[in-house]
Amino acid sequence: MNQLLLIVTIAEREVGICAAEVNSVIALDGVTPVPRAPDYIPGLTALRSRALTVIDCARSMELADPVDLSGPGERNAVVIEYDEHLYALLVDGVSDVMEARTQAAPIPGRLAPGWQRCGNGMIETDAGPVLVLDVGAVVGGPLAVAA
């Protein structure tokens, strides 16, 4: 049985999140801002009477400016549990679930620092190689590494 990957788009790239880590995919609705929180945390949202911390993945990887949630359009988020806390990872889109063909391997070539930090290696799928996201690094944000 091969590992399954959820393919999402972050900052116009396709990356994979291990399906085992994913609780669900939700349409983000009503985010309560958290004043003074790091800018990659747009706020909190509620899912089935539990509070989730929303993570702006692109911002966490320093690939884009903080997201503006007030704009129109539906936004998808991937719900994961990390270190006993629930997070909603804000992504540009969720496209597919793919089966991993190989084990994670180091990525040849240069990557932007954000991808470097949050990547867990590369996995071949039927649709070509994808980067696997290290959710811990993403929810930790840019500060976690500096500290």
């Binding site: 958290v34 003074r36 790091p38 270190d83 006993e84 806390h85």
Partner: peptide, 18 residues
Amino acid sequence: KPIAPAVMGTGLYAGTTL
């Protein structure tokens, strides 16, 4: 409920609830 460490890091909040 406890709050995510990154939010806790602001030092302003003790938890969250619905």
